[in-house]
C-alpha cells in the first residue's frame, strides 16, 4: 500500500471504527486485506482504496470487518466470571428484588464466547432467577461475526480454550467436527450489530456491561468517548467490566475502580449494588 493510501486508510478506519493503526501496522493491513483483493479480483490496494474513497458501502463494510480482531474464548481469564457469579449477581439480585429484571450487555462480543459464558452461568443459577426477566444483549461491529456468534458453532480448538468439560457436556452438541451450543443457551442472547462509536442508549439501560479487551485498540480520546457513552447507558449502581490490561484511570471520570477486585468499575458517586467494596462485603 502506498504511503498516502495508508494515511487515508488509517484515518478512514479510525473514523469508522475507532481502531488506531500506526505506520508499523502496514503488514497487518496487507495480511488482513489480501484475501479481499483476491475475492474481488482487484490487482492492487490502489483499487480498494479508490473504492473506499468513493464511499462504496459494501467495500467499506467488508474492509472494516476484516480489520477487526476477533480473538475470544469461553470463560476468558475465569476470575471476572467467578466474580460475576459469586458477588455481582447476588448483589444485583438483592438490589433488583422488586423489579426482577436484569439486563447485561456484552459489548464487542466477537464470535459469542463471552455472552454465551454469561448465559451458561445464569442457567446454572436458574433457581435463583425463577420469575426474573433476564436479557443478555451482545453486540459487535462486524456483521459476519455476529452471524457466526448467533449460530453458536465452534471448532474443537475453540471449545477447549477455557470451557470446562462439564459445561461442554451439558450445553453443547457435536455436529460433525464442530460443537454447537444448545438452542436453549442461544435463545438467551440477543445479538445485534452495533458500533461502539455510536450512542448505546438505543440499546437500553444495563445493569452490567462487559467491554473487555476492546479499548486497547483505541486511542485515549476514543476510549474516553466510548466509556462516557457506556456510562450513560448504565443503571446508576451498575457494574462495568474491562479487560485486564485496560483501565478508566486518566481516561474517564465517570467510573471508579471497585476496591478489592481488578477490572470491575462502578459509576462515581452512586449508591447501591456497586457501592460496597467487594472484599468488605465478603467479610460482612
Amino acid at each position: 500500500m502506498k504511503p498516502d493510501d495508508f494515511s487515508f486508510f488509517s484515518k478512514w478506519l479510525k473514523d469508522r471504527t475507532g481502531l488506531v493503526l500506526g505506520t508499523d501496522k502496514m503488514y497487518l493491513v496487507e495480511s488482513r486485506l489480501t484475501p479481499l483483493l483476491r475475492k474481488w479480483n482487484m490487482g492492487s490496494f490502489d483499487s480498494m482504496v479508490a473504492s473506499l474513497r468513493k464511499g462504496d458501502e459494501a467495500v467499506m463494510r467488508e474492509v472494516s470487518d476484516a480489520m477487526m480482531t476477533h480473538e475470544s474464548f469461553f470463560y476468558r481469564d475465569i476470575k471476572p466470571f467467578e466474580l460475576f457469579r459469586n458477588t455481582v449477581l447476588p448483589r444485583l439480585l438483592a438490589a433488583r428484588a422488586a423489579k426482577r429484571t436484569l439486563r447485561i450487555w456484552s459489548a464487542a462480543c466477537s464470535t459469542g464466547q463471552e455472552p454465551y459464558t454469561l448465559a451458561m452461568i445464569l442457567r446454572e443459577e436458574a433457581a435463583k432467577l425463577a420469575g426474573w426477566k433476564v436479557e443478555i444483549t451482545a453486540t459487535d461491529i462486524a456483521r459476519e461475526i455476529i452471524d457466526r456468534a448467533r449460530a453458536g458453532m465452534y471448532t474443537q480448538f475453540e471449545v477447549q480454550r477455557g470451557l470446562p468439560i462439564q459445561m461442554l457436556m451439558k450445553y453443547f452438541k457435536q455436529q460433525g467436527d464442530k460443537w454447537q451450543i444448545s438452542a436453549d443457551i442461544r435463545g438467551m442472547v440477543q445479538f445485534r450489530e452495533f458500533n461502539l462509536l455510536q450512542d448505546p442508549r438505543t440499546l437500553g439501560t444495563f445493569d452490567v456491561v462487559f467491554c473487555r479487551n476492546v479499548l486497547i485498540y483505541f486511542d485515549q480520546t476514543t476510549k474516553g468517548g466510548v466509556l462516557n457513552r457506556i456510562a450513560r447507558a448504565m443503571e446508576p449502581d451498575g457494574f462495568l467490566y474491562l479487560g485486564g490490561a485496560e483501565t478508566v484511570i486518566g481516561i474517564c471520570d465517570a467510573f471508579a475502580p471497585l476496591p478489592g477486585e481488578r477490572g470491575v468499575y462502578g459509576l462515581v458517586g452512586k449508591q447501591g449494588a456497586s457501592a460496597v467494596p467487594f472484599k468488605q462485603a465478603a467479610i460482612a
Binding site: Q160, R161, G162
Partner: peptide, 15 residues
C-alpha cells in the same frame, strides 16, 4: 481432544 497445543494444556490445567 487431540491435537492440542500449549494454550489448551495451560487452559485445562488452570481450570
Amino acid at each position: 481432544m487431540k491435537p492440542f497445543d500449549s494454550d489448551i494444556i495451560q487452559a485445562k490445567f488452570s481450570q
